[in-house]
Amino acid sequence: GMRSAVSAARRAATAAAAASTISTGGGQAAALSKADSTSLRARAKALKHIDEFPEIYPDFVQSPVWNRRIPLRESLERADMLERRMQLDVPEFYVGSIVAVTTTAAYLGAKEHRFVGICIRREKPGLLHQFTLRNVIDGQGVEVMYELYNPTIRKIETLKLEKRLDSDLSYLIDAHPEYSTVDPHMEPVAHPAGTPVPVNQMKVKLRPPPWTRRWEVIGPAGVANAWEDATPWYKRKFHKTKVNDYEKYDLIAAYRTGSTLEHELKVEEEMQEFERQRHAAGLTRRRIFRSASAAK
């Protein structure tokens, strides 16, 4: 839908920008960009490129802050991340999936601690990547932030693999509790391999305001009629600022914060090379590079 159209446009813009920096002549640039994109496509095919790579591996995406994109630092961080992923099985999960995390800590002694909840947020690139789980326990909303590469994590399980309409479900704190209630003893729901990850079209009904943020202005896709629920005082105050529809057409913003096919292919190549080496050593059969929708 919209997302794929924007990503396609983003790719085109990236290729065009790359070509324009290489050459100055018009015809030459067109020829170069064509050659460039065909070679990229050939590489993507050879590497069995996953189209949803930035969503499955948000930790491998480059920093949205451009002067933190230091190639040496990034490659060192990626090496550490791959090493950790060989030790810990990090399954595919998205914002909106139901995830269980098992941790251990000094205060628990030898015991392990398990928390089940909906993943409401995934943020920060690289080794600092963190995700937040939310659940309602005895009528009390609880959120736990986990750092993906923290060594206290023993196990991560995806109990239900699905996406939601938004990439940030922070509004669940302002929604009725039934929307974020998950049974802590729930049985995992198997995802049939090779089928696309389902997108849950659920529209959440918010509690009456005040809310933690101006959801009627932000307008997440997964919130049912936030504008109708907002109080007249806020409507009067903020109705002029509700013009944020242009943001989805902002290709420059998408280019700056998003990931490029070139970077994705580089990371995929590294991952596959790392796997090949470890499998050849005969120590493990674990796979890091995989996706539920592309599996055979």
């Binding site: 941790t103 800590a105 928390f115 909303g141 609880v142 959120e143 736990v144 986990y146």
Partner: peptide, 13 residues
Amino acid sequence: LRKHGVPVTDTNN
């Protein structure tokens, strides 16, 4: 200000 693995409740209890 959240810390890894420390539960945060919706209210201050």
